[in-house]
Each structure stands twice: as C-alpha cells, then as structure tokens.
C-alpha cells in the first residue's frame, strides 16, 4: 500500500507542472462560462473544437521539432500549399482524385520536411534560417499554383472533416484526438520518442552515446511537415477553397502554442500534453475575444499581449524566469 502511495506521489510530483497547467485551462473554461453565457451553448463548443483542429496538428508537429531544440518556420507555407493543392487537384471529389491529391500533399510535406531535416542535421545549418528559406520557397510555389484565393474543395472531402459524430464532435477533432494520443504514446514509450528527448536534452551527449541523432532530426522535421499538411487539409475543408497565404499566421501561432504550454527552446523539456494545454489556452482566449465582440483590429493587439503574458506566465510558474537570452 505504502509503495503504491509513494508511487502515486512520485507521479504527482513529476507531473506537477502539467497538472497545474490543466488547472489553468480549467480555470479559463470556468471563467469563460461565468462571464460569457454564450460560451455555454453547444454550438460554441463545436466552434471551439473546429477552431482548434487546424492549429492543433501543426502545433503538435512543432512540439516534436522544438523538443529537439529546433524550430520549423516553414509550416505555414506547407499549410498554404496544402490548401492550394486540395482546392485545385480534387476535381469534383471523385474517390480517385481525392486519394491522388492526398498522396501528393503528403509527398510534398515529406519532401519539405526531409529537406529541412537533412540541411539541419547533415550540414548543421541554423534551423530558423533553413526553415525560413524553405518556407519562402514553398510559399512561392503555392502562389505560383494559385495566385489568388480560390479553387474548390469538393463537398465529399469537407464532409470527412466537418461531419459530427453523435451530432456533437466534428470528425476533424476526432482525428486530432487520435494524433494527440499517438504522439503522446510515441514520445513516451518508444525508442524514437526517448531519442527525441535525448537529442534535445543534449545533442552532443546523445551522439556520443551512439544515438542516430541526424536520423532523429530528419524524422522530426518530416513529422512536423506532415502534421502541418493535416492542418492544411483541415483549413482547406473549412474554407472550401484554397488560399496561398492562408497558412502564414499559423507558423508563429504554432510556436506560441508550444511555448505557452511550457515546452522551451532549450529542448528536451515539455511534451504533447503541454502543447495541448497551450493550444486550448490560446484558442479559448481567442474565442472569448470573439464572443465579447472585440473588434478584429483590437484582437490583433490583444493576441500579442496574450502571447507575451502566457509565455511569461508559463516560464514564471516553472521558476525558470530569469534574466538573459541564451
């Protein structure tokens, strides 16, 4: 008995950070319900879930990368390109076109991620610079394929995302839950996952221990790009069309969600559950701004303030708030 108690205590101690993070999420939800009666409605919860889906995948992908001390600034362009491909290649939505388009989208994502990973791992280039550059290239390709927002994402495909289960949970959200569960399991229980943490914790030591760090990095960037393409598909099906610039805001928003969740740039710390909380916190606050009828102009300003406050809070609550950039 005592042993089990101790173990439970251990679990609590080791996860105190996550638990307190979810208390914050809960507090925000409760406050929202108190102050915004509209938020209590079923439709608003569905809206919340729908809103979380596109940012969700890409932020999860970004988590993998940031855990290895990297960053991927090309995700927004990958999302844009995905919406463009989805809006131009699916024709009327016949089964064959949809499958081919999906394969094309995933192939593109893997190529981008693989290129990022190889440049960063093999040539030891700065991730920020490399992904900024590939983002620029991919964004250019998206603009080339579809210079202005348009195209058409066929109905059967959008159904795959927006249809609700039990008349409540959108399919897209279910996919997201599956990916969350998979990612959580992958990072915690598999060799690949632990190697991600080892690489981020101390790359040189990981190399010395004989881990295939380069391979881990390539895989991580491919994962991130792939997840970004999921986000792109979600976005395309929500817009029913393609937009060569639609992904851009998601790049830094995904980074913000990861950091708000408490995963840091110093690597090896944090994880999927952190990011999920980060996504919820940022999305909830945005929804409240919407419900409260704040002008979109003002929302821009508030989003900035919220990100600063949230990142400061998350580093403060970990006690790592101290002077200096590293």
């Amino acid at each position: 008995m005592e042993h089990i108690n101790r173990k439970a205590l251990d679990v609590f101690r080791q996860n105190r950070e996550i638990i307190s993070l979810y208390f914050v999420v809960l507090a925000i939800v409760i406050l929202g319900m108190v102050f915004f009666p509209a938020f209590r409605g079923r439709q608003n919860l569905i809206n919340l879930m729908n809103q979380i889906v596109p940012i969700g995948f890409v932020a999860l992908g970004q988590t993998y990368v940031i855990l290895t001390t990297g960053i991927d600034l090309s995700v927004g362009s990958v999302m844009s390109l995905t919406t463009v491909l989805a809006a131009t290649r699916m024709n009327g939505g016949d089964f064959q076109s949809v499958i081919i388009t999906l394969l094309l989208v995933f192939a593109a994502a893997i190529v981008v991620g693989g290129f990022n990973g190889l440049m960063i791992a093999r040539l030891r280039l700065e991730p920020l610079i490399v992904t900024l550059a590939t983002g620029s290239i991919v964004g250019g390709i998206a603009l080339f394929l579809l210079p202005h927002p348009g195209g058409y994402v066929p109905y059967p495909f959008t159904q795959l995302w927006s249809q609700t289960v039990f008349n409540f949970v959108p399919m897209g959200f279910l996919y997201l839950l599956i990916i969350i569960a998979l990612s959580y399991f992958l990072l915690r229980n598999t060799r690949f996952g632990r190697w991600v943490y080892a690489t981020g914790g101390n790359e040189r030591k990981a190399r010395n221990t004989g881990l295939k760090v380069d391979l881990v990095k390539v895989k991580v960037y491919i994962t991130c790009s792939l997840f970004a393409s999921f986000s792109g598909l979600a976005l395309a099906s929500r817009m029913h069309s393609g937009d060569p610039l639609s992904g851009n805001p998601f790049t830094l928003f995904s980074v913000a969600a990861v950091l708000v969740g408490g995963t840091t740039f110093s690597g090896g710390r944090g994880g999927i559950l952190n990011t999920v909380a980060g996504i919820f916190i940022l999305s909830l606050l945005r929804i409240f701004l919407n419900i409260a009828g704040v002008s979109p102009y003002f929302q821009n300003l508030l989003t900035g303030l919220i990100i600063i406050a949230a990142v400061l809070y998350s580093s403060y609550s970990k006690g790592s708030l101290k002077g200096g950039v590293s």
Partner: peptide, 22 residues
Amino acid sequence: TGIPPMVMTFAMSSIVRGGDLL
C-alpha cells in the same frame, strides 16, 4: 524575463499592427 526574442517580437508585431488598424 528571458522570453524568446522570436516570440516577443512576433507578439509586438501583432500589437503594433493592431494599433495601426485601430
């Protein structure tokens, strides 16, 4: 505070743009 420069300046950019629009 040690907030990463990328996040700080991105947020600042958002604030400035919001200020502009307002």
